[in-house]
Simulated scan of single mutants.
Amino acid sequence: MVLNIAYIESTQALNRIILPYAAAQSPENLTLSTLISQGSPYQGNLNSSLVIIDFSDFQCYLCKRYVDNTEQQINSTYVQPGKAVYVFKHLPNRGFDSKNASIAAQCTNDQGKFWEFHKTLYADQGPIDSGWVNTENLKKFANEIPNMNITQFESCLDTKKYESFVDKDIAMANSLGFTETPSFIIMNSEGSNIEKIQGPKPFPIFKSIIDNLESKISNK
């Protein structure tokens, strides 16, 4: 089956028009403690008052653009200094191979290797559904990561252990009105103050929203 890229892009363009009028509601369980207890990959100090949630697809070229640029600045400015926790959620909607890549990435989280795998996939990203994240290549990528228990990883991937986990991430994204990648939530740890960002926006836009929310939280 041939993926109609033009159709996907036109659909995403339509979503960008419709989304501002959608009556999407934030899920009640959107709190840092719930995200962590459910097994979402994260970086940063869990005592931070700010949370950044990234909904992405490993085949998404816009996500790669964000990872190569803005994410690094967010990491050095907010995550590494302990000001924010960075949480990853799967939204595999760019191609047929995207979901399996998400399942594989979640499998690496069992061994504390998610962010290394995340870096590898975006560094080696190929054209959508060109086979670069087929099952064989996903296993090769995992094998390149130091100290990865490849037997454990392959068992996890082959049994699709985390398919339902990924499905729940997709459902969460939909409940938030997110239909394209990358999309983001900036919030406090209780999820009572939420800001949404869609698309690979430049760092100054993230900084403005994060700083404003941080000020709002600190003034309470």
Rank of each mutant, 00 (worst) to 15 (best):
E190A: 14
P27A: 00
K89T: 09
I36V: 10
G44A: 06
G82R: 12
L157A: 06
F55L: 00
Y7P: 00
I194M: 01
S56Y: 04
I205K: 03
Y78R: 10
S76I: 05
Q38R: 11
N193R: 08
I53T: 01
K64M: 10
H90N: 15
K99G: 11
S130W: 11
Y7V: 05
V51Q: 02
P92R: 12
D211Q: 08
Y21L: 07
C156A: 00
S175G: 06
S175I: 07
I209C: 02
F114K: 03
G39S: 05
Y78G: 09
Q43D: 05
P200Q: 04
G112L: 13
A22L: 03
Q25W: 13
M172W: 06
L19W: 12
D129G: 07
R16F: 01
S56N: 07
S183H: 05
K160A: 13
S40T: 00
T34S: 14
F203D: 01
I5Y: 10
G191Y: 03
P204I: 05
F165E: 09
S26K: 08
F178Y: 00
D68A: 15
K196E: 00
Y162S: 04
P204V: 04
I145V: 02
A6H: 07
A22M: 05
I186D: 09
Q25Y: 11
Y122T: 04
I197E: 01
S164R: 07
S10D: 14
E28Q: 13
I170Q: 02
N75C: 11
Y42Q: 08
N109F: 10
K196C: 00
E214D: 04
I197F: 02
W132I: 08
N45M: 13
I194C: 02
N100L: 15
E71M: 13
T135R: 13
Q111D: 02
E190D: 15
L138W: 03
E154G: 13
Q72C: 06
K220W: 07
K140C: 02
K83C: 01
F141L: 07
I145M: 01
V51A: 00
D68Y: 08
F206S: 01
N100T: 15
S164T: 09
N15C: 08
F114C: 02
S183W: 04
I185W: 04
G112P: 09
S189R: 13
V67S: 05
S130P: 12
P20Y: 13
I210H: 10
K160L: 13
K216D: 12
R16C: 02
Q198E: 03
E9Q: 14
K220N: 15
F96P: 06
E9I: 11
D169S: 03
S98R: 06
M187R: 11
I128P: 00
F96T: 14
A22I: 03
N188Y: 10
